[in-house]
Simulated assay, not measured.
Amino acid sequence: MLKFLLTLSLGVFCVSPLQASELTPVTKSCLPGDKQRHCERWVKDFKTAMDLAYKGDHGAQVTVAFCLSTGCHGAVAIDKVASCSWHLVIANSGAATVLDSSNTRNTCRPMTPAEKDEARALASDLVQKIYKRPLVKTDQM
């Protein structure tokens, strides 16, 4: 039993970049109350943005990166690594603005070196899937 638990716990930390990139961001269940409709709208908008982001839509990619960084009013689970990855995708899109560069710096720079490596691996996979080319490294991290 101990060997099984040890193997299971090691498997959690040893996710390859390809497997990690296939994980989809998690939307949350909106809590009942005054803000439930607002949260439900963000969940719907985030799911739509995810679909469009994978098709190369710049605005949708910005929305996805923003929601993964802030949680979009409790509608999306915060994932700083995934947010940084999407910012790197935006930087590689050919449509990045000065604001996008600032967002990349603000999101990615505070991360640990291991988190940055994971974000680069995820972004590399995303750029390959979306734009059919390799990730161009940026100094904004």
Rank of each mutant, 00 (worst) to 15 (best):
W42L: 08
R133A: 05
N106Q: 15
H87T: 04
V64L: 07
C72T: 00
L99I: 14
C39V: 02
S124H: 07
E22V: 11
I90G: 07
D45Y: 05
L31I: 13
V76L: 01
T7A: 10
S16T: 13
Y54C: 02
R37S: 15
Q36Y: 06
M141K: 03
T70A: 09
D45F: 02
D51W: 02
I130V: 10
A49E: 00
P32L: 04
L31H: 12
A121M: 07
K132V: 08
V26G: 04
T24L: 10
S93L: 13
T63N: 01
E118F: 04
S69Q: 15
T70K: 11
L52R: 02
C84T: 05
H58G: 00
I78V: 15
Y54N: 01
A123P: 03
T7G: 15
A121Q: 14
N92D: 04
S101Q: 14
S83Y: 04
A60L: 01
V89I: 03
N106G: 15
A53C: 06
P32T: 07
V89M: 00
V89C: 01
N103T: 03
P113N: 07
D100P: 12
D100R: 13
T112V: 09
S124A: 14
V64T: 06
T48Q: 08
L10R: 09
L31Q: 15
D57F: 06
G59M: 06
A95R: 12
L52K: 05
A20Y: 13
V127R: 07
R133P: 02
A82T: 08
M50Y: 09
R41D: 05
S83Q: 04
T97H: 05
V76F: 06
D125R: 15
T7P: 04
A121V: 05
M1D: 12
V98Q: 12
M50P: 05
A114E: 15
F46V: 01
T112G: 05
P25E: 02
A96E: 12
L6T: 10
E118L: 08
F13G: 10
F66L: 12
D117S: 14
K28S: 10
S85E: 07
L88M: 11
K3F: 07
V12R: 03
Y54H: 15
Y54W: 10
S102M: 12
C30E: 09
V136L: 11
L135C: 11
G56F: 01
I130A: 00
A114C: 04
L68D: 07
C30P: 09
A77I: 02
S93R: 04
D51R: 11
D79G: 03
P17Y: 01
D139A: 14
Q36F: 08
T112R: 11
R120C: 13
Y131R: 06
F66N: 14
N103A: 08
L68M: 15
C108D: 00
K35Y: 15
N103K: 12
A60P: 04
E115Y: 09
N103Y: 10
L135S: 05
T107L: 05
L23P: 04
S16L: 02
S29L: 13
C108L: 02
V15T: 05
A114Q: 15
G33E: 02
H38C: 06
A121D: 13
K116N: 07
C72F: 00
K3Y: 00
L8Y: 11
A91P: 00
A119H: 07
C108Q: 01
